[in-house]
């Protein structure tokens, strides 16, 4: 697997994302310019320029019509993907840690930091759209749709993500908790003490019915959104910054490494700056991808499951198109179960 290095950011990466078709990669870094890349060859398509500080988060809607970025400059910007124009800007009270479009694409959530007396919140804004063109039908409202202030007794939210059908918002807290809110009203539903340290990433399965969390406590966990039941746990030996679930194959990809502030004290070999592939069901580590010389801050897999990208503290995005051995890899158990199913299918058809 030969990676494509996406060199364009001047500082450490904060997030990478694929669009729904998997042909574009959106990345943002601490250098206040977000980039869009062709997934096929890693060529840069363009940039979103306008932020004044670190862009903590970026997302693109399912139509690849608009992208949204959340920045440390107390603002959220909506961008037209095709032109790269800033379409709208929301001012926020605190830095924006995470933004994500809902699956339907007509709203997005923003995780607002809890600083300067603000308790921190998950705030949902609306993006009014035309049903046909998916273009903005009117100027978006500056006011949020609703505001989920940090629950009493919880530490502030670090990350958040939407479930299927905009139904729930799953929020990962700094204290390791995961809480669940109604996606329409923002009403608190349930919470779970999942990790012992801060949750660093929440990413849903392709269909939005279960999600994976990564945490600084070195674990990643697979959780069902309906019941908040922990399905699987993946234990590693280093703090994790990001985790994603691969479509097509039953794997998860975890990224992390030595804390950014400790990097100078360790060599890159000991820093464990590798992406780790675990089997989603068997919870076994099946492989590692080396390359970054700093911790991995974010990992994302294409919705088709044919490639993945990781963004590191080292300022590079490494894009990997999986090769044949990845697709062919199967446990004997999986092979035999598939074979049995195949044979049963033959028998029933005969």
């Amino acid at each position: 697997m030969r990676p494509i290095l996406l060199k364009g950011h001047e500082r450490s990466l904060t997030q990478v994302k694929f669009n729904r078709e998997g042909d574009l990669i959106f990345s943002c870094a601490k250098d206040s310019v977000a980039s869009v890349w062709y997934a096929i060859n890693g060529e840069r398509l363009g940039t979103f320029e306008g932020h004044q500080g670190t862009i903590w988060s970026i997302d693109v809607d399912r139509f690849t019509q608009y992208a949204v970025t959340g920045s440390a400059d107390f603002s959220i910007k909506l961008w037209d993907v095709q032109t790269g124009q800033n379409v709208y800007t929301w001012k926020t009270k605190t830095p924006v840690r995470r933004v994500e479009f809902s699956p339907s694409g007509d709203k997005f959530l923003a995780v607002l930091d809890g600083v300067m007396g603000y308790p921190g919140s998950v705030t949902v804004y609306e993006v009014p759209r035309d049903n046909q063109t998916q273009q903005l039908s009117q100027e978006p409202s500056e006011e949020p749709l609703y505001n989920i202030l940090t629950h009493e007794g919880f530490e502030i939210a670090a990350v958040a993500a939407w479930s299927f059908l905009d139904r729930y918002i799953a929020v990962g807290h700094k204290d390791g908790r995961v809480s669940k809110y109604d996606g329409d009203t923002g009403e608190f539903i349930d919470a779970l003490e999942l990790h012992t340290q801060s949750v660093s990433d929440v990413q849903f399965s392709p269909d939005g019915t279960y999600f994976i969390t990564s945490s600084r406590d070195s674990d990643a966990k697979l959780v069902d959104i309906e019941t908040l039941e922990v399905l699987k746990t993946y234990e590693t030996d280093c703090p994790l910054n990001s985790a994603c679930i691969t479509p097509l194959k039953q794997f998860v990809i975890l990224g992390g490494g030595q804390d950014a502030k400790d990097v100078t004290t360790t060599s890159s070999r000991e820093g464990k700056f590798e992406a780790r592939l675990y089997h989603k069901i068997f919870q076994d580590e099946i492989g590692r991808v080396k390359g970054h010389f700093g911790p991995l801050n974010c990992v994302a897999v294409s919705p088709q499951g044919t490639s993945y990208a990781s963004g590191g503290e080292d300022g590079f995005v490494r894009l990997h198109h999986f090769d044949k051995s990845y697709f062919d890899f199967k446990y004997d158990v999986e092979k035999s179960v598939e074979a049995q199913k195949h044979m049963q299918g033959l028998e029933s058809s005969a």
Binding site: R20, E21, G22, D23, F164, L165, R167, S205, P206, D207, T209, P247, L248, P303, Q304, G305
Partner: peptide, 14 residues
């Protein structure tokens, strides 16, 4: 409950 079809993989691709 939601008339929602669960899937493992997004079929649409470029």
């Amino acid at each position: 409950e939601y008339n929602y079809k669960v899937y493992d993989q997004i079929e649409t691709s470029a």
